[in-house]
Design a binder for these strands. Structure first.
Lengths: 140, 140
DNA sequence: CGTGATGTTGAAAATCATTTTCGATTATAG
DNA sequence: CTATAATCGAAAATGATTTTCAACATCACG
């Protein structure tokens, strides 16, 4: 998917391109759902068997820094990483298969600013996630 | 504040009322911001010095079960607990002093359901938090 | 108002995720 | 091709949370 773009971006920031990084980047870029470091480790080792868990942590950290991936918080953990979307987007997550889909919500900003004013807060950021069941998981 | 109500609710569920629990419950019920287990430990020990950290964890777990307190997720950690609000409410959090305020957003439900339909998701729950600066922290 | 069954306690040990350390390895500029 | 600095993975260290367990305290019942 966007793996090549991500690798180019890493390179542009002065980072070296190694097989270990390629394996991690490709794994996260291609996943339809957020993955924990441990899940990335298992999946990426199928591509590059000598990969170490430490490198997974280090690479995920860099992807987050560069805003290529983002952390996703859920009740069962706040350490899963998902490919980031363009622009300001929000998440829709399937509670069964964990599939994640981005949606736009530009029109919400004004509402949020208004809520802030009512409570004497200067709202700077917000965080919105919807949880439900996707088409594929509707039954079962 | 609602500490007495919480203790009554714990009792109603068959849990015993101990000094350790009272200290934890009063600490969380009175706090204007979400507290980590470790923060609860420090504060509650001012009331009950022999309190153990393990009991803090166990009591917070029960408060969450009974929906008296809820976990609050932030970038810098997802292990802080806050007194729960009545009804379906959302959070407004000050990034400086961490003070938390609840606000209503009933009218958002329809919008969320609509977003779900567009993506073939049956939306069941949502999670919304606003971040900003409160009156008291506006300067400095 | 005892008293005993049972829930609860806190310390210490165990577990689990994450970070740090370090010597060996490898990408890449020149 | 080579030198150098970034990166690697293993192992050790850390930090948060959970489990274990013997001592203790609550409260239903008499």
């Amino acid at each position: 998917m966007s793996a090549k773009k991500w690798l180019k971006e890493l390179r542009a920031q002065g980072y070296r391109l190694t097989d270990a990084r390629r394996a991690v980047v490709e794994t996260v870029a291609q996943s339809p759902r957020a993955l924990t470091p441990s899940e990335v480790y298992d999946l990426a080792r199928e591509r590059y068997p000598t990969l170490g868990l430490v490198t997974v942590y280090r690479t995920l950290e860099k992807l987050e820094e560069l805003h290529l991936a983002q952390r996703v918080h859920q009740d069962d953990g706040c350490n899963a990483y998902l490919a980031h979307a363009e622009g300001h987007q929000h998440l829709l997550i399937c509670e069964k298969c964990k599939k994640a889909v981005y949606f736009e919500g530009d029109d919400l900003d004004d509402f949020f600013t208004e809520v802030g004013k009512k409570h004497n807060f200067a709202v700077k950021d917000h965080w919105l996630q919807l949880f439900g069941t996707c088409e594929d998981c509707k039954y079962g």
